[in-house]
Design a protein around this nucleic acid. Structure first.
Length: 574
RNA sequence: UGAGGGUUGGUCUAGCGGCAAGACGGCGGGUUCUGGCCCCGUUAACCCAGGUUCGAAUCCUGGACCCUCAGCCA
């Protein structure tokens, strides 16, 4: 192996996401223009700034892929910065989960891990400077009064009676705030801008509030904590970010972002906004996701139905599929609703070429092959992945009594049903052609067993000498060799495209979002299904051993996504 | 109704004064030991009205509709 190749392999290993070519978008146009004019001396520095108050979801993945992707593409850097300015809601648990998720997604912040709380001292000094410049003041209005004084969308606000305190007075008061000599809520530090501004964000926004609350990183050092608008722009500035990319709801805040940096005459990154992701049949609001967890509608943040990265990961989504998805949906400024089937498409596209094929019967229907010797069994050879010959073959046991999928037999089949019926012949994949002769039912009329014969000349599933064709090939599993396993079928968490449209989104929770099947019959090799390996159950879909509930020798499978199902579509139209 | 942002096939995205492109989906067909994959074909869009221009999705004017903002959240 040449040195060059080796270096390439290393990079791929540590940064799988860096290798993928990404499509262009309006933000990259801006960056390229800035590079051309040398606006930032050729630097490209972005950042992903999560607040550690919840788990990351696929909407965050869009932002992560964008920010880290840009850094990769332009030989820049991307910082991971925890925006931890509200100790009431934040915790170390979330910090750790977020780091794990970003890493899993395939991105590496290298040494660029930061916390807004690391800047609390400097942010405090900046605030003092703002006061000295006459651009900030301590307001002693109550929260209710501040709200009342702010005015409305149509009416200007009123200035606070405390607005014109002297610099000395403000300095003294602010110091008292910081030292904890004043009650929570008794006063705040506000920027002195314009109470009549048509942009409400600019009506003397709050910069600091008093909160006697231990912080997960700074402990009890601070009694005051900076607000987002104040801390964020200055953190960007301190880190010499070039392009501060955020979502559209911050467009109105950009004026304040710029004002603070200008007021302090410090390094000034540019904020660029893009539309956040909306996904059909799910919700991506952190607040609502918390609600689902707290109200126990799901088993936790990593419930496989959750759109969180931890949920998707546990379900069996791959990082590469999510990255591919983020690239495909693009980046723009218009609100949109991406169809969740696109995410499933990205998953299938990847797993089709990489997942080993395997046979498993989810709803078993017993078949006795009457002309097959009772005490006999044999091994048949199966291809592990028709898309990748290097994945080789395996042997599967076949015997007189087998299971097929209940759906694969119909007593009175409609015209377009190709599968097994009375008197019909089908192929058992890699095994034999069988013909059904009898249907056995219980007292209630339910089919409990099929009686079939097989054609020894079709061994391996091959066409017999007479050239006879069959219309269907079914998956199957030998009864005496099969293992029992639990398989969990997941569907969309919500039954409507946009659950947020309704006043109470929980009323649209899909009651069938999880169907656990306990009596599934899988080919014996799956007993030791490896965790972390994705399988394609032939004709059914992609399945992944649940990392939490599987144990050695007892895998529990999650269905990540079904295969495209043309038959289901035909059936629907009938 | 103040300010700001937005509007291109069913969905997402491109276009930057000169043939409206791609992906996903849909439909039809081919292939097939997965009704999968793959292949081929096809469907389908510039919010509206004026204006500028030889020529407008693109520039201008007016309108409609959607989204965001009145936390001591981010």
């Amino acid at each position: 192996m040449s040195g060059e190749n080796k270096a390439g392999d290393d990079k791929t290993h540590t940064d799988p996401a860096g290798k993928e070519k990404a499509s262009s978008n309006f933000i990259k146009h801006i960056i390229e223009a800035d590079l051309k004019t040398d606006k930032y001396g050729g630097r490209v520095v972005t950042r992903f700034p999560p607040e550690p108050n919840g788990y990351l979801h696929i909407g965050h993945a869009k932002s992560i892929c964008l920010n880290f992707g840009i850094a990769n593409q332009y030989q820049g850097t991307c910082h991971l910065r925890f925006d931890d300015t509200n100790p009431l809601k934040e915790s170390i648990e979330y910090v750790d989960a977020i780091k794990e998720d970003v890493r899993w997604l395939g991105f590496d912040w290298t040494k660029h891990l930061y916390y807004t709380s690391d800047y609390f001292d400097r942010l405090y000094e900046y605030a003092v400077e703002l006061i000295k410049r006459g651009k900030a003041y301590v307001d002693s209005l109550t929260p209710e009064e501040i709200r009342a004084f702010r005015g409305t969308l149509n009416e200007p606000g009123k200035e606070s009676p405390y607005r014109n305190r002297t610099v000395e007075e403000n300095l003294a008061l602010f110091e008292k705030m910081a030292k904890g000599e004043l009650e929570d809520g008794s006063c705040v530090l506000r920027a002195k801008i314009d109470m009549a501004s048509s942009n409400i964000v600019m009506r003397d926004p709050t910069l600091y509030r008093i909160r006697r609350q231990d912080h997960h990183r700074t402990g009890n050092k601070w009694c005051i904590y900076p607000m987002y608008d104040y801390a964020h722009c200055l953190s960007d500035s301190l880190e010499k970010i070039t392009h501060s990319i955020c979502t559209l709801e911050f467009v109105n805040n950009r004026e304040l972002y710029d004002w603070i940096l200008d007021a302090l005459e410090v390094y000034h990154p540019q904020q660029i906004e893009f539309a956040r992701l909306n996904l059909s049949y799910t919700i991506l609001s952190k607040r609502r996701l918390i609600q689902l967890v707290e109200e126990k509608h799901v088993s936790g943040w990593d419930d496989p139905r959750m759109p969180t990265l931890s949920g998707l990961r546990r379900r069996g989504y791959t990082a590469a599929a999510i990255r591919k998805f983020c690239d495909m949906i693009g980046v723009a400024r218009r609100d949109s609703m991406v169809d969740i089937s696109l995410l499933e498409h990205c998953l299938r596209e990847e797993l089709n070429v990489s997942a080993p094929r395997v046979m498993g019967v989810l709803h078993p229907l017993k078949i006795v092959i009457e002309n097959y010797p009772e005490d006999q069994s044999e091994m048949v050879e199966a291809i592990n992945n028709p898309e990748d010959e290097s994945m080789g073959t395996r042997e599967i046991p076949f015997s007189r009594v087998i299971y097929i999928e209940r759906d694969d037999f119909m007593e009175n089949p409609p015209k377009k049903f190709y599968r097994l019926g009375l008197g019909r012949e089908v192929r058992l994949r890699y095994a034999y052609f069988i013909t059904c002769h009898d249907v056995i039912k219980d007292e209630s009329g339910e089919i409990i067993e099929l009686r079939c014969t097989y054609d020894p000349e079709t061994r391996g599933g091959n066409t017999p000498p007479d050239g006879r064709k069959v219309k269907a090939t079914l998956h199957w599993v030998s009864k005496s060799h099969a293992i029992n396993a639990e398989v969990r079928l997941y569907d969309h968490l919500f039954s409507v495209e946009n659950p947020m449209q309704s006043s109470d989104f929980t009323e649209h929770l899909n009651p069938d979002s999880l169907v656990a099947l306990c009596n599934c019959k899988l080919e014996p090799g799956l007993k030791n299904a490896m965790s972390g390996v994705h399988y394609q159950f032939e004709r059914l879909g992609y399945f992944f051993p649940d990392p939490m509930d599987s144990s050695p020798g007892n895998p529990v499978f999650n269905r990540v996504a079904t295969l495209r199902d043309t038959w289901a579509k035909i059936k629907k139209k009938m």
